[in-house]
Amino acid sequence: MFRNDRVLTDKSQRDALLSAHLSVQYGNKPPVLRGVQLDIQHGEVLGLIGQSGSGKSTLAMAILGLIDRKRVDAQGSIFFEGSDLLTLREAALRSLRGRKIALVLQSPLSSLNPALKIRTQLRETWRAHASGSSADCDSTIRKALESVSLPSDDDFLRKYPAQMSVGQAQRVLIAMAVVHRPALLIADEATSALDVITQAEILKLFRELNQNFGMAILYISHDLASVAGICDRVAILHQGEIVEFGNTQKVLTSPSHEYTQRLLAAMPRMPQASFAAKAAAR
């Protein structure tokens, strides 16, 4: 069933892993998000597409409770596991971050701490929500590294971010995000800074993590073409509103909003395909 109707049914809202209805305004500037309605179902990969500055990261930060409530006006609700994230206290939010909802940011090398070894960063991530012996910690860390197809030997754990390739660094970030097997992983432009081959590998990895762990993924990108392949559904964000929301196939083949149509028209085609089209036209 396609869920491209703008008003969520009661049932889908109750069953959803997360359901948000949100407006956000920074200070006196015009609102960045205006009545955005979004639900993420258990175990799905949802793409959130919008051009740069459209408010995608703002939505991610609002879900993680990382927007400064004193300076930023966030209205509405974000229901996750029975509680409204917008009204939770900082301590409760902190216990969700990294444990239930994890984040992977865009540029892997700047998202890892340049002054800390990989081992330290992974241990810190583990320690934020777990207590136990360092043997417990190390075995969890190694499992997380193996789940993203990285070596887990001591030599690798001793490395600093600067000693790794961008692709490896991105995998380390993802390993950090899955240490506690979160129910929701937010990938904010997680593949935008990578070359196409690495990008494809990382997208495949996200797909595997989604299938193996049943982890839902909110996949944020400015580029519909690159993520369409892994998303069950996509939401198109334009000027602070969701203008299109539904099954990926349906959005790609019969977009209803004018912005989505322009977005699709701007998608790059394979050279052969356009060659063939030209040949046929002649």
């Binding site: 990382l66 990294g98 984040l103 340049p114 002054a115 810190e124 991530t125």
Partner: peptide, 27 residues
């Protein structure tokens, strides 16, 4: 910085964030 935002998104506590993640970068 991105890495402080990333660490905060991992649920690391404020004091620890400063000691372990921020201070070494002031070295």
């Amino acid at each position: 910085t991105d890495f402080v935002r990333q660490a905060r998104a991992s649920g690391i506590r404020g004091t620890r964030l400063f000691w372990i993640h921020v201070l070494p970068n002031m070295k």
